[in-house]
Amino acid sequence: MEILVILVPLALMLGLAGLVAFLWSLRSGQYDDLEGAAWRAIADDDPPQEAPAKR
């Protein structure tokens, strides 16, 4: 059971690493243009033949 001494801090560190990565991405302007990123993903070789559906 003594493995929990390693396991729990390890899991906490991994969770923390996720948090740090998130805060970094927040500061580096990753979320400034969310719509643009979504649109670029579908801007494929053949453009849509009709206007995108209105929501």
Partner: peptide, 20 residues
């Protein structure tokens, strides 16, 4: 051929996966 409904929401999903 529709853009992702909510990119922001998808990123909430991503970071909650990374945390939990």
């Amino acid at each position: 051929r529709n853009p992702l409904y909510a990119h922001k929401l998808s990123l909430v999903g991503f970071w909650s996966l990374a945390l939990f």
